[in-house]
């Protein structure tokens, strides 16, 4: 009986301390931007950010769950508290910093490139150009002579290039190179890659200092011990 009581007391204490450390963190992502994040055939979030995010949660001791959300409402739903963090290939920009805060970047600024049908020349870069709405690419295009057409998902944007609805699309080079490799030569890069991104970070509520400090430290550690580079090489060769 005595043993049982002690055992119970220990169990209660153990669960008590575990509770204190384990904050549940819901991570929101788009699930439509391979290799950053996508939904695999098991219906699970997969990709570079899934692997990195899970590792960060393991290091910080948070209990993480993944949630998918439409790109266009991904920031409003974060500030409304539907989830606690965004890992969705989101570039750190000043405009976004007005709404949310970011951790340090976990991926250096990714170049953006123009995608067009084969045989296109550089004139398409100033023609009708597609971009995903609310992205750095769409705000970049808005300041160029090109006519900007916005699409809600990267998939729709690529489809518009394929069927000639637009002359070209501007998007993250890593995303586009997969698309180009598997297009059987129908799609090509046009022009030189642009350096318009400051790097990709995790988006957090401005009031959430606890998460920012924890994740910042964890990302720093992965960066220093080279683990982050291994992941980057694996997903972005």
């Amino acid at each position: 009986m005595k043993k049982l009581i002690i055992g119970l007391a220990l169990a209660v204490c153990a669960s008590g301390t575990a509770m204190a450390q384990e904050r549940t963190v819901r991570i929101g992502t788009e699930g439509a931007y391979p290799p950053y994040n996508f939904i695999n055939d098991n219906g699970q979030v997969d990709g570079f950010e899934r692997e990195l995010g899970d590792r960060l949660c393991e290091m910080t001791g948070f209990n993480c769950t993944w949630v998918t959300n439409d790109w266009d409402t991904i920031i409003p739903n974060l500030v409304a508290g539907n989830y606690d963090a965004i890992m969705a290939g989101m570039s750190i920009t000043d405009a976004r910093k007005e709404m949310i805060s970011f951790t340090q970047r976990y991926k250096p600024g990714d170049p953006s490139s123009f995608l067009a049908l084969e045989g296109a020349d550089e004139s398409v870069m100033t023609g009708v150009v597609a971009a995903q709405s609310n992205t750095i690419q769409s705000s970049y295009l808005a300041d160029t002579p090109a006519t900007l057409v916005e699409f809600p998902t990267p998939e729709d944007m690529v489809a518009a290039v394929r069927n000639g609805e637009v002359d070209a699309a501007l998007a993250n080079s890593a995303y586009l190179s997969d698309v180009i490799n598997e297009s059987g030569g129908r799609l090509v890069f046009v022009g030189e890659p642009l350096d318009i991104a400051d790097g990709v970070g995790m988006g957090l509520r401005q009031s959430d200092n606890e998460l920012r400090e924890a994740f910042d430290a964890a990302i720093k550690e992965l960066e220093d011990n080279g683990e982050l580079q291994v992941m980057l090489d694996k997903w972005f060769n």
Binding site: G31, A32, P34, P35, F38, I39, N40, D41, D46, G47, T153, E155, V158, A159, R162, D178, V179, N181, E182
Partner: peptide, 19 residues
């Protein structure tokens, strides 16, 4: 939309735009 969207070989069953 998600299933029909074209899939690169990152996925188990790559295919074109089947939407």
């Amino acid at each position: 939309r998600e299933l029909g969207g074209s899939k690169t070989s990152r996925y188990e069953y790559p295919h074109g735009d089947w939407r």
